[in-house]
Design a protein around this nucleic acid. Sequence first.
DNA 1: TTAGGGTTACAG
DNA 2: CTGTAACCCTAA
Length: 297
Amino acid sequence: MGAPKQRWTADEEAALKAGVAKHGTGKWRTILRDPEFTAVLRLRSNVDLKDKWRNLSVTAGGYGSRERARMALKGGKRGSMVVAGPIDVDEKIPDNNDNIIIDAQPLAVVAEPMQLESSPEKDKSVARLDDLILEAIKEIKESSGSNKAAISAYIEEQYWPPNGFDKLLLAKLKAMVATGKLIKVNQKYRIAPSSYSSGGKSTKMYSTGEMDIGNNNVKQLSKPQVDAELDKMKSMSKEEAAAFAARAVAEAEAAIAEAEEAARAAEAAEAEADAAKAFLDAVVFTMRNRNPASAVY
DNA sequence: TTAGGGTTACAG
DNA sequence: CTGTAACCCTAA
C-alpha cells in the first residue's frame, strides 16, 4: 500500500469522516471549523481534507473522478483488474459466533436502496426497531402487556443497547402508541389489534452469521446530509464504522426524540425522524451484542 | 474555497 | 519500475 509522507492518523481519518457525515461532502472549511474536529484536524488544511477524502473514496471502491482519470491515463487494461464491485470495504469474518468487530457492510447495504431516487414506494413499515419492540412484547407474553422496563430488558438481552437507549425506547413507544401500533394500558404496552398477527411468522431479525437486512428496504431519504453519511459509510472500515456508529447513535437519538416530540402535534417531522431512525436501526443491528463499555469512543 | 489535474515521496 | 498516498497548482 501506500507510502507515508505525513500519513493520516486514524483519529484524523475518523474526524474527517465524521465531519463529512455531519456537514456533508465538501464543506471542508466547515468541518475544519467545527469545534469537534478542529482539535484533531488542526494541522490539516481544507485542501488536505479534500485530498484525503478523495483518496479514501478511491480505495473504498466508490469510483471517484480520480480513478477514472488515472485509468484513462494508463489506458488501463488488465485481465482481471477491478471489477465493478459496488462496495467492498470489508469482507465477512467467518466467525460463527458474533464478532466483536463492527461490520460496515450491512450499513452499506442499507444505503443502497436509500439512494435510489426513483422509488415511489411508500414503504410504511419502516422501522425495524418497531418490530423489535413488537417482538419483545410478543415474546414476553404478558396478558396485560409489558412495561417499558421489561421491553428494555428483553431487547438488551439480545441486542446492544446504545447510549441513552432508554430515552429512545420511551420515545419510540410513545410514537407507536400515537400511531396506533401499540396500546398503552396504565404502565404497560400491548400490541394493537390491527398491528401484528401475534403469533404468525416469526420476525427473524437476528440471524447469527450473516445479517439479512438486505431485503429490508428502508425508507428513501431526501436530505443531502443523510446522503453524505451513507456515502461515507461505503468507504469506512471497521474501526471507523464503530466510531461513527457511536456518534450516529447519539445523533439519531436526539433527532428521533425531537421529531417525535413534535410528531404528536404535527406529522411533518415524521420524515425527518424516519431518516434518523432507519439509520439508527442499521447501526443498532450492526452493533448488536456489543459491550456497552467498549462501544463508546 | 473547492474540484480536479498534476507532482513528489515512498513502499513493494 | 509501478502503485499509492500526501502534497501542490490552478481554474472556476
